[in-house]
Simulated scan of single mutants.
Amino acid sequence: MAIPELPDDILIDIFSRLPSKSVGKCRCLSKPWRTFLSSTQFIKSHLTNKILNQQNLLLITLSNSIQTIADVKHDAVSRKLDRIDGYTLKVVGSCDGLVLLVNEENDKFLVNPTTRHVAKLPNSPLALKGGYSSSMHGFGYDSYIDDYKVVALSYYDSDTDYEPDCVDTFVDVYCVRRGVWKRVESSPYDHSAPVTPPGAYLNGAVHWLAGSRESDHASVIAAFDLVNEVFTKIPAPNDLKKHSFEFSILVIFGGCLCMIVDRMDMRTDVWIMKEYGLADSWTKCTIDCGYDYGILNPLCYIGDEEVVWMTDEGRLAICNPKDETFRDMIVDGVPAMVNDGCVFVESLVSPSYDMFL
């Protein structure tokens, strides 16, 4: 079957409105169709079509299987992806329909849950050896060179206490389409922590909670600019104490930078930066979790007010922040407890380096 005699821009506009599964079927019609619908121009147009950007969930179960829920607002049935090697898979981040996963050996897997394609990324030849070091990762997009990047922060543990001293934090960057690792300037911040959280990607930067190396050792939000590959500082909420980030996590929620602060009294403060980089735009909502729900990570909105959360016990819960009501989220095919999860958008972007050649 030949491609209709229409200008490419019109064809792209038409086909970019189709769901990914429909595009996949059209690719099977003929080689010209496959070539056209696999072009970089079409894939980018399909990605930027906001009609298709509904909220989808990727969940990692305790048995290390990967489940997805397409359009969580209307679908309560999961679909299982192929199993990935290793144990204790954790989500690093999601960008343009790609999800980066890391296992206990720091092996990295780039997944497109929509197309079900998985690519194992090479380990950095500069990585510190395990046992005497800690590492954390981030994932995002560099708009200047049109490439996806993995950021690895690593440092040597100088003692065995719960809060290790950190002398230098090394920064390694992997460019997916170029297929190379490189080391850039070390971080000016102290990233040592009892746990090594993933970075939160937004507005072209990966964000971590860290400590200042200045005399006051104040807590900061450190943002790694993926284009310039340097760290900058994002203003934290003014009402937070300078050293109060120890029991906090940083996530992306509803397209905004979000801080979750555990108050240690069964209540959780949720800070949302409505306008990126503007200190006065932080707003706070306090939620009484009770004994049954300890909030760990807000995932996405479901309906106009309700929010899907992942609790500190690995349960999925639906909360209405206004009236502080909770209920378990029941998903067919997903166990009651999960290990990790994230939101992703539907896309045709390939996770494989070979596909970009």
Rank of each mutant, 00 (worst) to 15 (best):
G199V: 02
C258R: 02
V173L: 05
E104S: 13
V227H: 04
N238Y: 09
Y353E: 06
L62I: 11
M273V: 02
L257D: 04
P113T: 07
L47K: 08
F109Y: 15
Q54N: 14
L348R: 01
T325I: 06
F36W: 03
P351Y: 07
M329G: 01
E246T: 10
D146S: 09
N228Y: 13
D323L: 04
I330N: 15
N123S: 14
K129Y: 09
P237Q: 10
G179R: 07
T114V: 09
I10F: 13
A236Q: 12
E306P: 01
S20H: 06
D288K: 09
V343G: 00
S39A: 12
D82R: 12
T88W: 08
G333S: 06
G86P: 02
G24P: 03
A236S: 15
D142K: 02
L126Q: 14
F170K: 07
D354R: 09
D85L: 12
D262Q: 12
L98G: 00
S352P: 03
G277H: 15
D239W: 10
N297S: 13
N297P: 00
F344Q: 02
V77H: 14
F36C: 01
E324F: 05
G140M: 02
H117F: 04
G255P: 04
A279F: 04
P7N: 08
T88G: 09
Y201W: 13
I84C: 05
V176C: 11
I145R: 11
D262A: 07
H243I: 12
H191F: 13
G254Y: 07
F245V: 09
H74G: 03
T115V: 06
F344E: 06
I66T: 05
F253M: 11
H117M: 10
R315W: 11
Y132L: 13
T48W: 10
N103D: 15
A317S: 13
R17P: 05
V99R: 02
R27E: 09
P198N: 14
A210R: 00
S350T: 13
